[in-house]
């Protein structure tokens, strides 16, 4: 049932990165945000495969930008999270919170 869908781990990461970037979310900035915050190297292909999947689920919307010379005359594709996407993030956070609540393992690592 769609209303109970939870985000996959990388979907979750990508959605949060797009939310953090606001109006400036496109392939390069999303990739750099994820690398800076998770110290994990990801390819542009992995980002687009996930963004397209999230768009197909209705969690993301995209719009084309203008072509620029530093991009070889190619245009950017800007992304923004939809209300459905925000609900999916909240749902996933609630589920993770409920699973981790009361676990000693978190206290011992803080």
């Amino acid at each position: 049932m769609r209303g109970r869908d939870y985000l996959g781990e990388f979907e979750h990461v990508v959605l949060l990165a797009v939310l953090r970037l606001g109006d400036q979310a496109y392939g390069v900035t999303v990739r750099r945000e994820i690398e800076a915050r998770t110290k994990r190297e990801v390819s542009i292909g992995a980002i687009y495969a996930t963004l397209d999947r999230l768009e197909a689920k209705g969690y993301m919307q995209s719009r084309p930008g203008d072509p620029t010379p530093e991009r070889g005359g190619r245009s950017k594709r800007f992304f923004r999270v939809t209300a459905q996407g925000v609900s999916a993030v909240n749902r996933t956070h609630r589920a993770l919170h409920s699973l981790t609540e009361g676990l000693d393992i978190l206290r011992s690592h803080s």
Partner: peptide
């Protein structure tokens, strides 16, 4: 996908 992916790769390359 090609337009935006190649543009992103080009931007990072520059």
């Amino acid at each position: 996908q090609a337009e935006s992916i190649l543009g992103d790769l080009h931007e990072e390359f520059s």
